[in-house]
Simulated scan of single mutants.
Amino acid sequence: MGNASCIFFACVDQASVGVMERWGRFERLAEPGLHCFNPLAGEWLAGLLSTRIRSLEVRIETKTKDNVFVQLLCSIQYRVIKENADDAFYELQNPKEQIQAFVFDVVRALVPRMTLDELFEQKGEVAKAVSEELEKVMGAYGYSIEHILMVDIIPDASVRKAMNEINAAQRLQLANVYKGEAEKVLQIKKAEGDAEAKYLGGVGVARQRQAITDGLRENILNFSHTVEGASAKEVMDLIMITQYFDTIKDLGNSSKNTTVFIPHGPGHVRDISDQIRNGLMEASSARVHGE
């Protein structure tokens, strides 16, 4: 507390309040500006108090419910109540130590009832409890608590390392789960695609064979009607021989084929034609019985 006085005048700065005494007894509060007093009558300016907001940082070390030692960094913003500046001037010799003592008392009574996770989640509740207690106590001494911020919660270094490892393991586990789900979906989609491709391939083969059968039937009928005396068996043999030679020609023109041994006599072609004819007759007979 400063003393800005002269013989008959005293100047009180802006954002300050002066305490005037007469013969050592509190007389009145002096507003900012120039004040006149009479030292011969025992009047003098006992001191000045700043009404600006001040900040006090308090570091508290305590233990949580799950036996973890932590340091809490608390920032208290307070100011002198202008109307009660005389209480702040005369009642407390060191307001910072008084505030710090009450913060220690409240925090060390509240935090040991919380786990470390609860402390991180409810640090606002801790700040609120400290604010309520300080407002109740410091208000009687002419001080107003403006804000209380729980700036930081610092666990022991080994605890921080363990927490980071747990967090990393959980994230890795979650990533593996997502990766497994993605691979599962990929395999399912791949299997569905293969099944669809095989189904469509089967449909294509069936349609191809149906088209071949219809084409052969049409060719046989057209040939039988065009050439008199030609039987269906003779027409089928002719078509089989034609396809046989087309196949040999395709094998010869392809540069990627290796040596292939195939039967090439007319008797073999007749055997193939007999097999195809029997298959067509059996299919027609089964269709007739089914209808």
Rank of each mutant, 00 (worst) to 15 (best):
V205Y: 05
V103M: 03
A46V: 03
G279P: 00
A46P: 00
A4Q: 04
E118G: 07
L110F: 11
E192A: 13
G24S: 10
S50K: 06
E133D: 12
R28I: 03
T242H: 10
V137D: 07
K190W: 02
L149P: 00
V70E: 11
V203H: 02
A168V: 05
Q210S: 15
E57Q: 14
Y199G: 13
L149R: 10
A15L: 11
D274K: 08
N222E: 10
M20N: 02
A169W: 05
D271Y: 07
V80E: 07
P39S: 09
N257S: 05
F261E: 11
L280S: 02
I262V: 13
M163Y: 04
Q93S: 14
S75K: 10
A85G: 07
E27V: 01
F9M: 12
R25Y: 04
V19L: 15
H289I: 12
N167M: 03
L56S: 05
E196W: 00
L48V: 09
E91W: 01
S158A: 14
V137K: 14
L238C: 13
S16I: 00
F223V: 11
H35E: 05
A30F: 08
G229K: 07
S50F: 02
Q93V: 13
E57M: 14
L200T: 08
D271T: 12
Q173L: 15
R207W: 05
V70G: 14
V185M: 11
L49V: 05
G142F: 00
E218P: 01
F261Y: 09
A127M: 04
L48Q: 08
E196R: 11
I239A: 15
Y178H: 12
A169D: 05
R209C: 07
V12A: 02
N253R: 13
S144E: 15
F9P: 01
S254A: 09
H225I: 11
L110H: 09
L49C: 14
E61C: 04
I148L: 12
E21Y: 06
N84H: 08
Q122W: 01
S16G: 02
D86V: 04
L40F: 15
G279Y: 08
Y78I: 02
S231G: 15
I76N: 00
E135T: 06
P39R: 09
G202M: 10
R207S: 13
T115Q: 09
R25M: 08
I276S: 02
L119G: 14
A195N: 11
A182E: 09
G279V: 03
Y143L: 12
A46R: 09
F37M: 10
L116H: 05
E27W: 10
E183W: 05
G202V: 03
A157N: 12
R217M: 14
I241R: 14
M281R: 08
I154Y: 11
G202L: 09
P266I: 06
G33F: 04
E27D: 14
Q243S: 11
V70A: 06
G204Y: 08
N3S: 12
D156W: 02
D87F: 05
S131T: 09
L29N: 03
A88P: 07
Q71M: 04
I166A: 15
S144C: 08
I145P: 01
S224C: 12
I166W: 04
S273V: 07
L149I: 09
K63V: 13
I154H: 15
V159R: 08
E234P: 01
